[in-house]
Design a protein around this nucleic acid. Structure first.
Length: 270
DNA sequence: TAACAGGGACGTA
DNA sequence: TACGTCCCTGTT
């Protein structure tokens, strides 16, 4: 067990921020996340956090995963004091962090996300993991499923994932898996690229458009300058930034602010 | 019951 | 650049 006091870290907010589809609230103050082929339970109350793992595992895996070495207050402090909308948004979503998630998992997750709602995205991914992911056990003997690797999904027919509720997105995922296995898409190479180049490469994947590519860059590659624009963000920008969002002022961490805006639009009181 | 929208992207014009 | 279409589910 690892006990920590952490600023700007709220699991409920991260859960609802729509960047991670394999994190769930088990009960009040208790959360579970599956990532890196591992399953972790976390207790959080009033800023105090208890990670149910060894100190070694925390240092090697989860500190990085939850981006805990980054100082988010530093970014929030740079918000224009006159921009009350953004201040309010960041004030409400200040516990959000951009997780360091697996690139392949993010590609699949956001292929599925298009024209889809969060509840169903979660279920789709759950179905895929149960059907094609490796079964694992927690220390206490509970079983869970890892995210299926590309080579497993590459063996499928294009429509096979319709059984997992993906609908027309099934062929996107299967084709992406085949592209990774064939070498047409080189994940390790993409991980070394800068934002612009990585985005360009991701756009080659069938089913990946600009918005999805930006989501993958932000959540799967930790390019904090990626600023995904979906319908919600678009509405917010039209309402509050008629002259455009001041990306120059916030160069290099626009993606963090995007998350505050997104979260505020979904959960903030109007 | 039917219609509609939901964190888009593709193909065609 | 614009528009119809793709699949499924929960909501109205």
């Amino acid at each position: 067990m690892v006990k920590k006091q952490i600023e700007n870290f709220d699991l409920e907010q991260i859960c609802n921020s729509g960047q991670c589809f394999r994190m769930e609230k088990l009960e009040e103050n208790k959360y579970r996340v599956i990532a890196n082929d591992r399953c972790l339970d976390i207790y959080q109350k009033d800023g105090e956090c208890i990670f149910n793992c060894s100190l070694e595992e925390f240092a090697e895996i989860w500190e990085e995963y939850f981006d805990l070495k980054e100082d988010y207050k530093f970014y929030i402090d740079q918000i224009n004091p006159k921009d009350t909308y953004l201040l309010n948004a960041a004030g409400m979503g200040r516990g959000i962090r951009i997780l360091n998630q697996d690139l392949w998992e993010m590609i699949v997750s956001f292929l599925i996300s298009q024209q889809n709602n969060i509840v169903r995205i979660r279920r789709c991914i759950q179905n895929i993991c149960r059907e094609y992911g490796e079964e694992k056990k927690t220390a206490s003997g509970e079983s869970y499923y890892a995210f299926p690797k590309p080579d497993v999904l590459a063996c499928l027919e294009e429509d096979d994932l319709k059984a997992c509720n993906l609908g027309y997105r099934s062929k996107y995922v299967v084709r992406a898996a085949k592209a990774v296995v064939s070498g047409d898409i080189d994940l390790q190479a993409i991980e070394k690229m800068k934002y612009a180049e990585a985005k360009k490469e991701l756009l080659k994947i069938f089913g990946v458009g600009i918005k999805v590519a930006d989501c993958i860059c932000l959540f799967g590659l930790h390019h904090l300058e990626a600023f995904p624009v979906d319908t919600h963000i678009n509405q917010a920008l039209e309402k509050h930034y008629k002259r455009g969002f001041p990306k120059r002022r916030y160069k290099g961490f626009e993606g963090i602010l995007q998350q505050y805006i997104f979260y505020y639009e979904l959960f903030g009181e109007k």
